[in-house]
Amino acid sequence: MHHHPRPALRHPAALFLCLALLLCAAARPALAVEGGASHYIQGAYGDFLMGLIPAAGFYARNDTFYQSGHMGGTAKGGKVYAGLDESMVMNITKLSYVFDVPAMGGFLGLGLGVPIIINEHITGDVAANYSRKSRATGLDTPHHLEYGGGGDRGGLSDLFLMPVIAGWNFGECHLAVMPIVFLPTGYYDKNKLTNLGMNYTTFDGNVAFTWLGKAGFELSVNAGYMINTENITTKYVSGNQLHVDWTAAYHVNERLALGAVGYLLAQTTPDTGSGANLGSFYSSGTGIGPAVTYTVPVAGKDVMLIAKWLHGIGASHSFLGDSVFASFALKF
């Protein structure tokens, strides 16, 4: 989406007054995790059978998704924005290998994730730089107002490692533990809206559970907790986040399953660091949508095809919008 200045805002004085009223009405600009985004991608953490490791071997999964959304006032690229609009096409390839470990009664392995942003398009509403303290309020005050900005960019995002993958199967119940480490490998420029990475390391502990009944009903949940390090460029430490992805499905047969998927996101600690000079704010969000999977034989291998759509139904200080996924997974 493209936004154009309203006629009433074309004069600089009117522009300043409008932004000042916006910021005062919100008490402070709405910040939560730097730029309102983190290494968590809504709905990307699982769908069908997310807690089940069926056998030892080499696994591959590829997700291509389109995401679009809007976020109210936030700080990004060294400026405070009245709003941001984003659309992105991204591809993530996950490779993992697990061993059968009789001594632990389950599986143990490791994995790697390679995310490629095919294109990210961001536009920003009215923006202001913040660098001077107000004697009256003690807050940073804006100078140099402008009509936002934006652009397009694509390339390698932040690689992630799965140093440990552990799984156990207990009849109809299945459990998997998978910590993830995100590395700051994507392009980053604090003065740009279109960054490909976060410019900090994130440690994300994840536990997934699947119940798959004999009648074909499934309930799967993945819960994770993200701990973020400092962005050394901006001196900003994003608060920790709790995220939960869930699936409720019915397996029509061994190849076809239909269900609903959803996510919950909640920031649990405030933003800190000298770069978080506008205060501490908390992000949250939730979404839901349909999902379908169908397994097809290809060259002697069973390839699991997955499609899902997640619609954001609530967000605070984070992007609210839609995500559409097309994925495949197989075991070699």
Rank of each mutant, 00 (worst) to 15 (best):
A44M: 08
P102Y: 06
A8M: 15
T137W: 06
G138V: 05
A55W: 04
D322C: 05
H3E: 13
G83L: 05
S96F: 03
T286G: 14
G155H: 07
S284L: 01
G224T: 02
L52V: 10
L330R: 06
F325D: 00
G205V: 13
V164A: 11
T201P: 11
F325C: 01
E172P: 14
K192A: 13
G205H: 09
L145W: 06
A30R: 03
T194L: 01
M178G: 01
Q267V: 04
A37C: 07
G279T: 01
G275L: 00
P290I: 08
R135N: 10
S318V: 04
E86G: 08
I306L: 09
L23Q: 02
S316P: 07
V221D: 09
Y66H: 14
V298D: 10
D152Y: 12
A56M: 07
K94C: 07
L320K: 11
N119A: 10
A307N: 11
E254C: 11
S283D: 03
G138W: 04
Y45N: 13
Y130R: 08
A127T: 05
I41C: 01
S134W: 09
L258E: 05
V33A: 06
G167V: 02
D47R: 05
W309H: 09
G35F: 00
G275M: 00
W309E: 05
G72C: 08
D152N: 12
L95V: 10
G113M: 04
G148K: 04
F217K: 06
L330Y: 15
V33K: 00
A307L: 06
T272N: 03
L219C: 13
P297H: 10
L278D: 02
G148L: 02
P297C: 07
A32I: 01
A307T: 13
D140W: 03
S323K: 08
L22T: 09
D302G: 09
V237G: 00
H317T: 04
L156M: 13
L265E: 03
V98F: 02
G46M: 04
H39I: 03
G154K: 01
L159Y: 05
G77N: 02
A208N: 07
F332N: 10
E86M: 15
Y59H: 12
P5R: 11
Y66N: 08
F170S: 12
L264I: 13
S280K: 05
L256D: 11
F209I: 14
M104R: 10
T141V: 13
T194P: 05
S68R: 14
P297D: 13
S318F: 01
T141N: 09
K235P: 09
D302E: 14
L264Q: 10
A248M: 14
Y188E: 03
D47L: 03
L15A: 12
F319D: 00
V303Y: 05
Y188C: 03
N91R: 14
P54G: 08
H70M: 09
V181K: 04
F160M: 02
Q267F: 01
Y250R: 08
G109I: 02
L264V: 14
C24N: 15
G148F: 01
L108Y: 06
Y97W: 15
C24D: 15
P163D: 06
E86H: 10
I227D: 04
A223R: 09
P7C: 08
H144F: 12
P12Q: 12
N119F: 05
S38C: 03
A30V: 08
T123D: 13
G197S: 09
N277D: 11
D47C: 06
G83H: 12
H243F: 09
N62R: 10
